[in-house]
Design a protein around this nucleic acid. Structure first.
Length: 627
RNA sequence: GGACCCGUAGCACAGCUUGGAUAGUGCGGACGCUUGCGGAGCGUCAGGUCGUGGGUUCGAGUCCCCCCGGGCCCGCCA
């Protein structure tokens, strides 16, 4: 039983009332009442019928309310018309609250069956393996991970992929650095290898290209060797990228993010996927050999919707970079025969196996492809992604099987830029790995973690150091993950280091704190909760509001999954915490008047705690028992 | 030149998909709340011509168009 049932009952009841009054059928909407004094659910049927019936919305709502009240049903206690024309309903909380509490005890509470167990592939992270993750990458990682968690809750059978671009220009850059630039391929003591590669080798070698043309030429040479994959350089590169990748993954795992498979670009290049995809495109007429003009001799993709033709194969016969993206996208959708074998890369969180692609026939066969694919990439790539979406919908002859989930970038605030010795004249600045303008994810986590450690220690001086470290890490990750998810994907996040340390207001720690408070009440009560007795006597506005919000968890999951909008769950967690804090402040639990009320309130607190923990889990945020 | 995104209080955002009831929240500012289940909390107040102009509608922050401001993308690079 959740709020959904109340909606369903009202929808049916209003339809019946319309029929009884002889009103025409109409697709009215039910929505949450905008203010508490309007009740719980509002219906706009009055407005919609006004024209057809030539009556005022209020009169229609009034008639409907009277008709509806002849049979109030189970979960509605009041139906009334408002002057504005809305038809408002109030839930029957005597019944609703205990039933919501019972429902919320289910392990899979909040789950919805949108996906029907269909295969869904989510690709995210996909950071070039030549540097450490910075806060811009973190947005990708967290958005992707949260979407995967939400879709899993919505009954999709999800596979999470991380694409490793180990044969690209950025990797070539650091190889040049190590092989020809004189940099040691060991990081200095105390520095992670990915940081060393990004902070030192990548940035410095890029600077040196400016003056050292010979070095710059080595880059294209190295790139060619990487693609061919047989030389000593390629072997060196392979070893190198795996060392960087290992460090990058440590950062992701620290954030609570796990994957199912690592897809190496070098293997896509060395497999036959491209040849097959190219033939398919030719036979479908997606690409044509240009006969004249400036693109003469190139295979190009022509789409009327695009103003420019896109070169797929150069006049010298070599393929452009989309020749890597197209077969990979097709592979993700299971359109092409899978040339890969798979072997175990690691075990994450004690039980989740991370696989990796191989071209070794001795390894096993697996299936990671999906009926639908979501690719999480920065919206700066939406031009290319639009093209791939189009090609995939032609391949699959289903328009929405490939989805580019774009998001705006993370920029650095002028104050934070200053800490990197950058004067931006009061404007925020785009991060750039190449130019060394970024704040690394590990650094932010470390700073946050030590800040939260101080705070936790102050509050819990008696707790063991190791316990405090664990709590502060949970809170630090909660803080970072929440800031990355709470606002809309198409809004730029201006990252400010000082601001990110805030633990008050609309933040992850605020929400976690509500959970810790609830936990402490339950602990302190020392009681075994009795859910089987009548849970009445909890009828203050605070308790009703809390029950209502607990009761709409599944509706929020559905909304978030349908719209691929992780912030909906973030807002929901915040709403839960706000409602609980109001309850906490105004309603006494342990010192309530009677044992039965104490029990009922404890049950509500337990229900809240469980629901918040489940919702936070969708955000990959731990719910600490104390903090 | 063309494509896409953003513009709502001092700052950061929600609300726009599906048009209706006094436009919400956080930070910052002012003031208050703890012998009580933990103050990472709660409460009160101040602060908004929803970028401009037009259109559609009984009704527009929400839909349509023009314009203005900001961002970002547009290679036989990857």
């Amino acid at each position: 039983m959740t709020l959904r049932l109340v909606y369903d009952e009202i929808r049916l009841g209003v339809r019946q009332a319309c029929d009884a009054l002889g009103y025409p059928a109409t697709e009215f909407d039910l929505s949450e009442a905008s203010r508490p004094e309007f009740g719980d659910v509002s219906c706009n049927a009055g407005f919609l019928l006004a024209k057809a019936l030539k009556k005022r919305p209020f009169d229609i709502a009034q008639a409907l309310a009277i008709q509806y009240k002849k049979n109030l049903g189970t979960y509605v206690s009041e139906a009334s018309a408002h002057d504005s024309g809305y038809l408002n309903f109030t839930a029957n909380y005597e019944l609703f609250t205990p039933q919501v509490i019972h429902s919320s005890l289910r392990a899979n509470y909040g789950a919805v069956d949108l996906g029907k167990n269909s295969k869904m592939v989510i690709e995210h992270t996909s950071v070039n393996p030549n540097k450490a993750l910075h806060v811009g990458h973190v947005r990708n990682v967290i958005v992707g991970d949260t979407i995967a968690r939400i879709l899993h809750k919505a009954s999709y059978d999800t596979s999470v992929l991380n694409y490793v671009d180990d044969s690209g220009l950025q990797v070539a850059d650091i190889i040049v650095g190590f092989k020809y630039g004189g940099y040691s391929d060991k990081a200095p003591e105390g520095q992670k290898f990915d940081h060393y590669c990004g902070d030192v080798v990548y940035v410095k070698i890029t600077e040196r290209y400016e003056t050292d043309k010979a070095l710059a030429e080595m880059r294209s040479h190295v790139l060619k060797e990487l693609e061919e994959g047989t030389s000593e350089i390629a072997k060196f590169g392979d070893d190198l990228t795996r060392r960087v990748l290992e460090e990058q993954l440590k950062t992701c795992w620290r954030l609570g993010v796990t994957y199912d498979c690592l897809n190496f670009e070098s293997q896509i290049v060395r497999s036959n996927l491209w040849t097959i995809a190219f033939e398919k495109m030719k036979s479908m007429g997606i690409t044509e050999l240009e006969k004249e003009g400036k693109l003469a001799g190139c295979w190009v993709i022509k789409y009327e919707s695009e103003e420019e033709d896109k070169v797929l194969v150069r006049s010298n016969g070599t393929a452009t970079y989309i020749a890597k993206d197209i077969p990979y996208a097709a592979w993700k959708l299971g359109i092409l025969e899978d040339p890969f074998h798979y072997k175990q890369y690691a075990v994450q969180n004690t039980d989740r196996v991370l696989w990796q692609t191989t071209l070794d026939e001795k390894d096993t066969k697996m299936h990671f492809a999906g009926d639908r694919v979501i690719t999480v990439i920065d919206s700066r790539q939406s031009r290319l992604q639009k093209l791939i979406t189009k090609i995939m919908s032609d391949f699959k002859s289903k328009p929405d099987s490939y989805v580019h989930l774009g998001y705006e970038s993370v920029t650095l605030s002028p104050e934070t830029a200053k800490t990197l010795d950058l004067d931006t004249g009061g404007k925020s600045v785009q991060m750039s790995g190449r130019k060394g303008i970024y704040v690394s994810a590990d650094y932010v986590l470390d700073v946050l973690s030590s800040r939260t450690f101080e705070e936790a220690k102050k509050r819990n001086p008696e707790l063991d150091e190791m316990v405090l470290v664990k709590i502060s890490e949970q809170v630090a990750i909660g803080a970072l993950r929440y800031t990355m998810i709470k606002q809309d994907l198409d809004k730029i996040i201006t990252f400010d280091l000082t601001e990110s340390l805030s633990l008050e207001g609309d933040t992850g720690p605020y929400i976690q704190y509500a959970h810790a408070r609830a936990m402490r009440i339950l602990e302190k009560s020392g009681k075994t909760l009795n859910f089987e007795t009548s849970l009445d006597g909890i009828d203050t506005v605070y308790e009703k509001d809390l029950a209502k919000i607990i009761g709409k968890f599944d509706l929020q999951v559905e909304d978030a999954a349908k719209n691929l909008s992780p912030k909906i769950i973030a807002k929901y967690c915040y709403q839960l915490a706000v409602s609980f804090n109001a309850f906490y402040e105004h309603v006494k639990v342990l010192t309530a008047d009677s044992e039965s009320v104490i029990n009922a309130r404890l049950c509500l607190v337990y229900s809240f705690k469980e629901t918040l923990a489940k919702a936070l889990q969708l955000l990959g945020i731990d719910a600490p028992d104390r903090m």
